[in-house]
Design a protein around this nucleic acid. Sequence first.
DNA 1: AGCTTTATGTTGCAATTGCAACAATTTTAA
DNA 2: TTAAAATTGTTGCAATTGCAACATAAAGCT
Lengths: 209, 209
Amino acid sequence: MNLFDNISSKNVMKLLYVLESSKVVVKKNQLFLRNIAEQNMIGFIDEGLVEVIKTDYNGNRVIVEELEENDVFGTFVTPLNGEHELLALEDSVIYIFDYDEIIKMKMDKDYYNQFVKNLLLIMNEKIIQKNNRIEILTKKSIRHKLLEYFDIESSSIGLRVFHLPFTFTELADYLAVDRSAMQRELKNLKEEGFIEVKGRKITLLYDKY
Amino acid sequence: MNLFDNISSKNVMKLLYVLESSKVVVKKNQLFLRNIAEQNMIGFIDEGLVEVIKTDYNGNRVIVEELEENDVFGTFVTPLNGEHELLALEDSVIYIFDYDEIIKMKMDKDYYNQFVKNLLLIMNEKIIQKNNRIEILTKKSIRHKLLEYFDIESSSIGLRVFHLPFTFTELADYLAVDRSAMQRELKNLKEEGFIEVKGRKITLLYDKY
DNA sequence: AGCTTTATGTTGCAATTGCAACAATTTTAA
DNA sequence: TTAAAATTGTTGCAATTGCAACATAAAGCT
């Protein structure tokens, strides 16, 4: 699901104009949008590759999210505050919308209504992802977090074998647990015959329920 | 923000009809909608008071959410699956919409577009709540979870004093930690002079940053 | 009012987890 | 291709947490 699905490129142009979107063109390795939290905004990656980066109180930079073409970001998608900034990994083109502008707009055009619906569908996807993560994070042990994650991942494709969409280090972040403790638990699960791990390929050896 | 804000009651009626909503009337203490997960649905509490209940594998019933008049629920708001059901705490009237129906509908009416925008705003609120909870749940100690929660709660009203919107038992659930361990940590925070607790009134004694 | 249920407060103890530190392997970039 | 950076794998140990088991207080119900 993309923001401009079912809208002709001609009408996309009109939208960009009417909604007073601003076009941001950045070069590779350029930092931009230093204070993204200030506005109630929606960003759209038209071309390129961008990372959302958070600088924590220690001054450590953490990658919050990676955004590719057609991805949407903004306060309504990811929690962004003054600590966040964006880094272009490639030359990129980004459009910035004002969320309130979109809502306030009175406009009787098909393409505008389609746009709002697209936004709705995207938010729906995001909510499902967030619900899944909350479901995982509320589990009280690393083991149960892992198993919940595995179940969600495997159910979504309907197979008991799947590939991790990120590194184990990132998985630990996603589950909000210590990496080495997670590694220990993965080892236990392997030894007890619950799972098989080959690189990022995970096979669930237990039956669902 | 309510689902039918800025829509006249006459047009609300039309919407209910056009979107083929079904009206569910239930008596106090009645259980209903046993398999809410099946459909991609949106529910709206028109009158009454309703609880979302989850029966876990042990057969324990857990209250997932309490819904009052004008509240919206459904798979796109709360993760619902076959284990969930609804319980009317009072005589209630609920409208059920088919989410896909809403999206597919081609309709050039102000009230329909307003309705979609309202949905968008509601989802926006939900996303913010979920982001907040994720921010809290990813903290690694009970102390940090509490402090993050306090900060979010106090920032939202701009005061360092606020009332818990639920019991301490429910707070422990929200933070996904053991209640007694949380109690212990609250005691520590009190003794170290970080906070003051009187019933459900919390006062933050430290400066923000 | 009296009974029942739910919430709060507390503690000991065992289990789990985070942290630090390191080696080995893999990936990335010049 | 080679050096640098990032990821994976492992372990000991201390700190945190969950769990069980209470006592007390408060709230809800008839």
